[in-house]
Amino acid sequence: MVIAPTAPAERAAPLGIRLCGIHHGYRIGGVFTPVIGDVSLDIAPGEFVALLGPSGCGKSTLLRLVAGLEPPHAGQVLADGAPVTGPGPDRIVMFQDPTLYPWRTVRANVALSRDIAGRRDDAAVDAAIGMVGLKGFERAWPHQLSGGMAQRAALARALVNDPRLLILDEPLGKLDSLTRLTMQTELLRLWQKRGFTVIMVTHDVEEALLLATRVVTFRPRPAGVISDMSIDLPYPRHRDNPRLLALRREILVRLGHSEDW
């Protein structure tokens, strides 16, 4: 696998995110439904934070607010101390679906952010494609890719821009378990190498514990933090590590699954 020889000094510094008293909701059928109720979080630059919670609890909405795709009803999102007013190229989102543009080749998809910025940066695009192991597939159409390959292409598209914050909305949720393992390792390697901040939504407790430096658990809608724990285990972590198993049990209990374990 080819890795771009980029000196760490050229990299943009990771972004710190602070959420202050976030409230948010949607009008569904004329009735206001609160989705997020008073969430405050402080994410240090370079952290890998996993947001855990039952599905539909508002985690994804929280990510949209951090990305700047929507403004919160109340409260503030600060990126390095400055309020977030809209989406920006230093905060890249990766969705559960690869959402590659079907009318663009893999290469043109990866080069999307370059097109938007009006820049041609072939070296960076090639490096990103090589980094996720898609060399040789540059000219393929998205419909010709497997689910795992499409998600890799989406990862390359996110990374080509050298983001300061990577926002991951269950990016591995739809992959088969083997592809998922590979992608987890890949993601971890990239985070360690590039040093950006990661906020990842998942409902897989094990995945959160394998990857994140910090796991924040949410209660169901309206979302609120129930626990916030640092995972000070060294990498690479192993699934059968007794500490990890204990943490997994603890988190499941907090999520209200004491009997299922």
Partner: peptide, 18 residues
């Protein structure tokens, strides 16, 4: 058009023209 297509471009700083 899948709204996610717009979201992807918007997070990368795309304006209305794009």
């Amino acid at each position: 058009v899948d709204p996610a297509y717009y979201d992807v471009a918007r997070t990368m700083g795309a304006r209305n023209r794009f």
